[in-house]
Amino acid sequence: MAKIKILVGTVYGGARDVADGIKPVLEQKGYQVDITEDPALSDLTDPDNTAILISVSTTGSGDFPPGFDKFYFSLNDQGASLGHLKYGVIALGDSSYDTTFCEAGRKIDNILAEYGATRVGRRLDIDSAEHFDAIEPAISWIEDWTTRLV
């Protein structure tokens, strides 16, 4: 069975809610789905993963949530050969923070691409000022993402 791992970076639970909301959609399409809020570099190199999804919120001035920043900085410091990896990014933010809107999602997207991973489809940036419930746009996006994953 094809496996998708969702790596979550959250402070108040919104990014986890998104991961939990899209999990049944992925399972209905035949994927085994694992969600973790404690990502490690081994998640990116695990050959059992068909793809990785990142669901991450932006905090402060474009920062990662606590815990997820350790993962990002480990990847940045140690690097990895990710030519085998397919991934998607769901970034949550608030557009009133103009220059740092969804910055955490952009940062993780850029570093995965830098190490050779292939993004499937476009990154989804969800604006909390526009969507009170981030699950709705995420479900629409995941439907399209899975068709491109094949």
Rank of each mutant, 00 (worst) to 15 (best):
V25A: 07
G21N: 08
I6M: 05
A40I: 11
S74D: 15
F64Y: 12
I52G: 01
E136P: 07
P137E: 14
D20P: 02
D46P: 00
V18R: 06
S128N: 14
S81N: 13
A40D: 11
T10K: 07
S81I: 08
S61V: 09
L149R: 02
I111C: 01
A113V: 13
G60D: 06
E37D: 15
K86L: 12
R16V: 12
F64C: 04
G67C: 01
Q28H: 11
T100R: 03
D43A: 04
R148S: 13
I135V: 15
T36S: 14
Q32G: 08
G116A: 05
Y72T: 02
T36Y: 11
I111W: 00
L124W: 01
I135F: 08
K3L: 13
L75Q: 03
S55R: 05
K23S: 11
N110I: 03
Y12A: 15
G116D: 09
A91L: 05
T59R: 11
A134Y: 06
G67F: 02
V33K: 03
W145C: 03
L112C: 07
I52V: 15
D109E: 12
G121Y: 07
Q28N: 14
E114N: 08
K3D: 08
D34G: 04
F132N: 11
A117C: 04
G30I: 08
L124I: 00
Y31V: 07
L149N: 04
Y72P: 00
W141Q: 02
G116C: 12
G30M: 10
W145L: 09
K5D: 07
P66F: 10
I6A: 07
I35R: 03
G9R: 05
T100N: 13
L149C: 05
Y72Q: 01
R123N: 09
T58V: 03
I108N: 01
A80S: 03
V18I: 14
G116Y: 09
G83D: 03
A113N: 10
N49D: 08
K70R: 08
Y97D: 00
K70N: 14
D109L: 03
A129S: 15
A80Y: 00
G9W: 02
N76C: 05
E130I: 12
L53K: 05
L26W: 06
I126R: 01
P39M: 05
G88N: 05
S61C: 10
I54Y: 02
A2M: 14
K23W: 08
V120K: 02
G9H: 06
Y115P: 04
A91M: 01
G116I: 09
G105M: 05
D43T: 01
T146K: 10
G21C: 10
